[in-house]
Design a protein around this nucleic acid. Structure first.
Length: 470
RNA sequence: GGCGUCGUACCCAAGUGGCUAAGGGAGCAGUCUGCAAAACUGUUAUGCAUCGGUUCGAAUCCGAUCGACGCCUCCA
């Protein structure tokens, strides 16, 4: 087995992946908060995790992939009187928070599926695991890591000396309350809520009983509780977006390690953002691009996947329609290339040539070097154009590489004449005659007629022709 | 204010000490063609933000400068 290297945020270096249990990999990925549609920037994170998972599978690991669905309403900000995202969504649409969660969970799964992102082994909803979250808080409470304020139970980060190791946080340098007012009951600026009490004069749609009073879990506890439940107190890989490094994942480590007393996760991986001209894509700004927006504009979901394949996951991508067009053209040309290759006689591949094996080796080295998919994609192109490979080997390599790329290359079929209506073929035959008689005016007219009916006529040598649907 | 990231052709982008600086898009030229389109062939960075330094050797390491961006609120 080739060695697999991944970049571990914990040490800011590429490290060889060594699983806790031979042949198996456990990974937890922070999932969506289901109060609205995902935008295409959100989706980039799940795409990156998909590549990671596919690379693990390619290397022969059995992968247990867990993703949470955050359906508990967290406050939109850290202020005591903040609005709840879920309840806000519910009010906006005149539905219950439970209906909102159900609806947007479905929408999320559909987006994921359209992008050929393999579904996780386990989806876990925060609201299905409240008991586990309360137990974890209780563990921290019993060990003295918490304190109580008017609005909730807080984690005392001062009691956890390693706090901030993931993010290399310089706690002294954090500007407290730079943008919002913090609760003055908080002992340290990095302290965070484990359990929030329901407001006394108000009944929330989502609230639960706990040893400390009616309320709802804090913003970070679900991921610690559920990852421990499904993957154990110590597991291989945890991923998410870069924005999770300083707060969410930092807090997850604190919660988990303070309670269990052992190391939580071996490898932390983070995907970079998709940005627009004006900066990071966000939902709070109002308008945002969904996958559906791209589809409505005539792009296929896989055009977007190809776009994402062009860049490394730890680099920002600037989104523009110009760049998406470049991806679509490239992807279309790739499919045309494969069609052309498949249109010839394909022999069964028994033994791969030395050259073909070399491609597989190089491809494996690329993806195993911290998921270098853009290099992998370049290798696919190189192979498709390589005169030393026979066509059936090219098809084999395309299918093999597509296990990572996920572009449905195996579904690319050579055009067959049988798909073309007889009427069109008749017109084309007529044009052939007109051309032979050098009646080019009629020939051009007939070509236009064929075009109007949705087909493109392409001349080949000797007066023969090809017909393609437009 | 603190912390962190990045700057490779017209665009996207790989490469992080030593082979002619991958690949894709776009453009241009040629082959083919009645004309097109497609396809094919060729082509577009003595150069890697700038200036210094280290080295036999630097896009790659170090320093400074300039520029872009992210985080320190919830966020992918």
């Amino acid at each position: 087995m080739e060695k697999l290297y991944i970049y571990n945020t914990l040490h800011r270096t590429k490290e060889e992946f060594i699983p806790m249990e031979a042949g198996k990999a456990g990974m937890y990925c922070c999932g969506p908060t289901v109060y609205n549609f995902a935008h295409i920037g959100n989706l980039r994170a799940y795409f990156f995790e998909d590549i990671l998972k596919r690379v693990l599978l390619f290397n022969g690991y059995k992968v247990k992939h867990v993703m949470n669905i955050t359906d508990v309403g967290h406050l939109v900000s850290d202020e005591d009187e903040g609005e709840d995202k879920m309840e806000k969504g519910a009010n906006r649409e005149g539905k219950t928070v439970w209906e909102i969660a159900e609806f947007y969970t479905g929408a999320f799964k559909e987006d994921i599926s359209l992008l050929n992102i393999l579904p996780p082994t386990i989806y876990c909803k925060a609201t299905d695991n409240i008991k586990e979250q309360i137990e974890l808080i209780k563990c921290l409470f019993d060990k003295g890591y918490t304190y109580t304020t008017n609005d909730g139970i807080y984690f005392d980060t001062e009691k956890f000396p390693e706090y901030g190791k993931l993010a290399l946080l310089d706690i002294e340098g954090l500007e407290e309350g730079k943008r919002i007012a913090f609760s003055d009951e908080k002992k340290n600026k990095t302290d965070f809520a484990l359990w929030k009490f329901s407001p006394k004069d108000q009944k929330r749609q989502m609230e639960w009983e706990s040893p400390w009073g009616t309320g709802f879990p804090g913003w970070h506890i679900e991921c610690s509780a559920m990852s421990i439940k499904f993957l154990g107190r110590h597991f291989d890989i945890h991923c998410g977006g870069v924005d999770h490094i300083p707060i969410h994942h930092t807090n997850e480590i604190a919660q988990a390690e303070a309670c269990t007393g052992e190391k939580f996760v071996n490898y932390w991986l983070h995907g970079e953002f998709l940005i627009e001209e004006k900066g990071k894509m966000s939902k709070s700004a109002g308008e945002f691009l969904r996958l559906k927006t791209l589809i409505d504009k005539g792009y296929s979901p896989l055009d977007y996947r190809y776009f994402l394949l062009m860049t490394h996951y730890r680099k920002k991508i600037k989104f523009s329609f110009e760049n998406l067009d470049a991806a679509r053209n490239g992807f279309q040309n790739l499919k045309n290339k494969i069609k052309e290759i498949k249109s010839g006689e394909l022999k069964e591949v028994k033994d791969l040539s030395e050259k073909a094996n070399e491609y597989i080796k190089r491809f494996t080295e690329s993806i195993n070097d911290d998921l270098n998919i853009s290099e992998g994609l370049a290798l696919l192109w190189e192979a498709m154009k390589d005169g030393e490979l026979i066509d059936s080997e090219k098809v084999y390599l395309a299918n093999e590489f597509d296990k990572i790329l996920g572009l449905d290359l195996n579904k690319v079929e050579a055009d067959t004449v049988s798909d073309i209506p007889a009427e069109i073929i008749q017109l084309a035959e007529k044009r052939k005659e007109a051309k032979a008689a050098k009646d080019f005016k009629l020939a051009d007219e007939l070509r236009q007629q064929i075009k109007d009916k949705g087909f493109e006529l392409l001349d080949k040598k000797g007066g023969e022709f090809d017909i393609k649907p437009l």
